[in-house]
């Protein structure tokens, strides 16, 4: 009993932090979503689940959900693939690899506002890095951030770069956790590098893949800063992702109850997607053992 108490004491600071900065605001938002709070006028009539019904019928919210899904589909698989590729390279036991790991991690510790500003310059139509380069090969200049067809892809491409660090580190950890004996056995069986990756590395990375997939998907659904800095949801609402949509609803239109209801619907959708991903990958996890 006393041992239990000591354990609780150890986790108490983290629990207190979670309660004050996560649980209380979440419960408060849930409470707010049940009212029609006109925050500027100070009126707050109870509407029950009325705001949820309103949001479910709002095409702009579903457009934002669709945009978030599109961003997720564009950025997560490609981001995971690039991170795995880089991780395989930097996991090699060679001199100077620590430097490369650090360099690839740098974007992740940079301010997303500063990074977004940098990428605005990269995407500039006339003298941005990409257009200057593509023009050398005779391509026409593209206004990436103002073109409805390109804008979302531009954000996704940038996120592959910004999200590289954490994904890569997790993959490196996963790769280093694969028992060398398995590779040795594969080599004895005459496996070539691709076969070793396919039949040893990839199955052994299943838990890592699941973790990266779920956390990347959640992060993708929460996208905000690059949209705020680079496109403001435009052009023509094509980058109005749900995180930005909720922000505008709450702090531009001051519809805080609607925004709270939207946040809970986002929570439900994100949880459902994560659960679906877990179920889809469950079969790969069965029988997995790193020991």
């Amino acid at each position: 009993m006393r041992k239990d108490r000591t354990g609780y004491l150890f986790i108490a600071p983290a629990l207190a932090h979670l309660a004050v900065f996560a649980a209380v605001p979440i419960l408060y938002a849930l409470w707010v979503s049940l009212f029609d709070w006109k925050i500027l006028k100070g009126t707050m009539p109870f509407v029950g689940l009325g705001k949820y019904g309103e949001v479910l019928q709002d095409p702009s919210f579903w457009n934002a959900m669709g945009n978030s899904l599109k961003f997720t589909l564009l950025s997560v698989p490609s981001g995971m693939a690039v991170a795995l590729l880089i991780a395989v390279l930097v996991a090699q036991q060679l001199r100077g690899m620590g430097l490369f790991r650090t360099l690839y991690y740098v974007p992740s510790v940079s301010s997303m506002v500063a990074v977004s500003m940098l990428w605005i310059y990269v995407y500039l139509p006339d003298n941005g890095l990409i257009n200057v380069t593509t023009k050398l090969f005779g391509f026409k200049s593209v206004d990436f951030l103002n073109d409805p067809w390109w804008a979302m892809s531009a954000l996704a491409f940038m996120s592959v770069w910004t999200g590289l660090g954490p994904r890569m580190i997790i993959y490196v950890a996963g790769l280093l956790g694969v028992p060398p004996v398995l590779y040795e056995a594969a080599e004895l069986d005459g496996a070539r590098p691709w076969a070793k990756f396919r039949h040893v590395t990839w199955p052994m990375l299943a838990p890592t893949n699941l973790f990266v997939l779920v956390t990347s998907t959640i992060a993708a659904f929460q996208l905000f800063t690059p949209v705020y800095m680079m496109t403001r949801g435009g052009p023509l609402d094509t980058t109005d992702v749900v995180g930005y949509h909720i922000y505008v609803e709450a702090w531009s239109k001051f519809h805080v109850s609607t925004a709270s209801a939207q946040s809970f619907l986002l929570l439900i959708v994100t949880a459902a997607v994560a659960m679906a991903q877990y179920r889809l990958m469950k079969s790969q996890l069965e029988g997995y053992s790193a020991s």
């Binding site: 103002n146 073109d147 409805p148 435009g234 052009p235 023509l236 609402d237 531009s252 239109k253």
Partner: peptide, 20 residues
């Protein structure tokens, strides 16, 4: 009150015409 939203929506209409 809220005319800024009218301008947002109105501008999107013009963008849709000019760009799309």
């Amino acid at each position: 009150e809220g005319y800024d939203r009218v301008e947002d929506v109105g501008q999107k209409a013009m963008d849709a015409v000019l760009k799309n």
